[in-house]
Design a protein around this nucleic acid. Structure first.
Lengths: 109, 109
DNA sequence: GTAATTCATCGTAATATTGCAATGAAGCAA
DNA sequence: TTGCTTCATTGCAATATTACGATGAATTAC
């Protein structure tokens, strides 16, 4: 099928999965790390830094934008992308809550 | 292509993406949450809890096992799956380091 | 031995993802 | 205007993912 049965899971589970899916490609991880590093960016920049074709970068940016993690502002001929700090903080809270569950003191088997 | 160009990214970026990819499906999120909750589990249990067919659950468990996050021990006819606490802690460190990058004080645009 | 249970694996269909060439849209410079 | 730059979108091919029925392997119960 290739289609997840989202309707049988909780909203929280689907949300975690949606976030994680976006991080599930090294190009998007690299884009975010670069945005953190220079805190101001245009797509052309990224094409040089990452090493994928311009349409491919544009597509990855779109997915990050769809999740709300980055914002894009048109500035003349170029577009300035940057981290949406508020959205990032919200997302971080959701993910860390999932990652930081209490570990069992003893292995069960 | 459907194939990520992993060779152009750093080992760290690929590792984060691999971890995130595993969390990128609500069934695997649900499996992990259930394992955290009851701290001892068999696959049949999960089939009832999650609501997917047994081969599908088995497949998701395989991916979690491949990443090393869970361990499976055969116990008679059933298999006991549980979180690998050490691997989970290691993974958590990698992901939190990525999520917890310093946010820029000012939005750039 | 047979039968029942539990889980893994195989095979397959439907859908999603990745990557890029080609093209389009919008702004700037002359 | 024309040309240039920058980025988005379209269209397509190759590959990956998801889900499940059918089947297989291993164990237990009798």
């Amino acid at each position: 099928m290739g289609l997840a049965k989202t309707e049988i899971f909780t909203e929280q589970q689907n949300e975690i999965a949606l976030i994680a899916k976006v991080f599930g490609h090294p190009a998007r991880v690299a884009i975010l790390q670069h945005l953190f590093k220079i805190n101001s960016c245009v797509c052309g920049d990224l094409v040089n830094v990452i090493g994928l074709a311009q349409p491919t970068i544009s597509q990855h940016l779109k997915e990050l934008k769809l999740l709300g993690l980055i914002k894009g502002n048109v500035e003349g001929t170029s577009v300035c992308y940057c981290i949406d700090t508020e959205a990032w903080t919200d997302m971080k809270g959701i993910m860390i809550k999932f990652l930081d569950q209490d570990l069992p003191d003893t292995e069960c088997c």
